[in-house]
């Protein structure tokens, strides 16, 4: 087992925890954080595989991908937080309830 494999295993763990979090946690902020953890797992995985060839320099491609990914993750988080705040503002809820009780926009 090499170092990158160790980190890869950790990445997968993080990914699963994040997934579990999004699904199970009810509070929206927690869901947001879980999504970030999930993303963190994915990124960690990418960075770890950049070292898969165990030569001196890391593969730059996964690094570039992660960098892009981080920006995207941030945007998603910002959007999610904005929506969360808006939901709280309009309904007072902090969870994704009432899946059936849809009212049409007016």
């Amino acid at each position: 087992m090499s170092q990158y494999q160790l980190y890869a295993v950790g990445a997968v763990l993080l990914f699963c925890i994040g997934l579990q979090g999004i699904i199970v946690c009810r509070h929206l902020l927690k869901k947001v954080m879980a999504a970030n953890i999930m993303g963190g797992g994915a990124f960690l995985f990418l960075i770890s595989i950049a070292r898969r060839n165990t030569i001196e320099t890391a593969d730059p491609v996964p690094h570039a991908m992660v960098l892009t990914g981080i920006v995207i993750a941030l945007s998603a988080s910002v959007l999610a937080l904005a929506l969360t705040r808006q939901i709280h503002k309009t309904t007072g809820h902090t969870t994704l309830e009432d899946p059936t009780n849809n009212r049409v926009e007016k």
């Binding site: 170092q3 990158y4 980190y7 902020l29 947001v32 954080m33 970030n36 963190g40 990124f43 960075i47 770890s48 950049a50 070292r51 320099t57 890391a58 690094h63 992660v66 960098l67 981080i70 920006v71 993750a73 941030l74 988080s77 910002v78 937080l81 969360t84 705040r85 709280h88 902090t94």
Partner: peptide
């Protein structure tokens, strides 16, 4: 893992910025 530059970005964005935003949202709520 030898990705220092990316790590910096993560620390700033992933931990820092997102964290701040979360705190702000929490506060607001």
């Amino acid at each position: 893992l030898g990705a220092a530059d990316i790590a910096l970005a993560e620390a700033a964005i992933g931990a820092g910025l997102t964290g701040v935003l979360l705190l702000d949202a929490l506060h607001a709520m």
